[in-house]
């Protein structure tokens, strides 16, 4: 691939992720502000955003944060919240034929939900290239780290994020992404199974098991409907 096409691909990725960057900045500010109330210094907050780079698990860690910090507690919570990344990377991995194996593993380190969703959308219409993927990652990563830092530094000056509704940015982004994957009734079955299992698990089981439970139930629903369709084709 020539350097010009690489640059075009990189810019294409940047264009695709730009609305999500605008959406992630308030989420990062809220995260930083919450971290400051939990006693994390701006440097610690920035380190967490840079090294973990997974918003959901970072918010959960702030929920259960203690002093001194319990590495087993937040480590296990991160594993549980992010177990969905196993499915995400398995799914995206099948669409990375244009990547060398080292690039594939390197790219997966940046598999945040938003980046992954945009890469999945792209793979439906065109061949996913490393340059296009890098165009998603670079600005989004910087926006996440620096908005977290800014939130931690500004802290109390931001006002109450709940009153402003800014805490809702995170779920709103997820809803928009879900709607982008709608493909018809079989998607409805997946969403129904996933949503019902997640709500029920969250109600009855303490902690964050609901994410793994919902994802598993949605996957099971897809396998069941997929099997029955296979059976219709080959009686």
């Amino acid at each position: 691939m020539s350097n010009t096409t690489k640059l075009q691909d990189f810019l294409g990725g940047m264009r695709a992720i730009s609305p999500l960057i605008a959406a992630v900045i308030p989420i990062g500010l809220v995260f930083g502000a919450v971290a400051a109330t939990k006693g994390l210094s701006p440097v610690e907050t920035g380190l967490m955003s840079a090294l973990v780079f997974a918003g959901g698990s970072q918010f959960v860690a702030m929920d259960i944060w203690s002093h001194p910090a319990s590495w087993t507690g937040v480590g296990f919570a991160a594993l549980l919240v992010n177990i969905r990344h196993v499915l995400m990377s398995a799914s995206l991995g099948t669409k990375m034929s244009g990547f060398t194996p080292p690039t594939r593993y390197l790219s997966m380190l940046f598999l945040a939900d938003e980046i992954w969703a945009m890469a999945e959308f792209r793979a439906k219409v065109a061949r996913l290239t490393p340059a296009w993927f890098a165009g998603l990652v670079a600005p989004f990563y910087l926006a996440w780290v620096f908005s977290g830092l800014a939130g931690a530094a500004l802290g109390a000056f931001l006002g109450d994020p709940v009153v402003l509704g800014l805490d809702f940015t995170f779920p709103a982004v997820f809803i928009v992404l879900v709607m982008g994957f709608w493909k018809g009734p079989e998607t409805g079955a997946v969403l129904l199974a996933s949503g019902a299992a997640a709500v029920a698990t969250q109600h009855f089981v303490p902690g964050v098991w609901y994410i793994a439970a919902g994802a598993g139930a949605g996957l099971a629903a897809a396998m069941l409907t997929g099997k029955s369709q296979d059976a219709e084709v080959t009686p």
């Binding site: 995400m88 799914s91 997820f174 992404l177 879900v178 994802a215």
Partner: peptide, 13 residues
């Protein structure tokens, strides 16, 4: 079906 299943599980509660 993984993308919608995963995203829905996070946001459902």
């Amino acid at each position: 079906s993984i993308p919608p299943a995963v995203l829905m599980a996070v946001v459902a509660p």
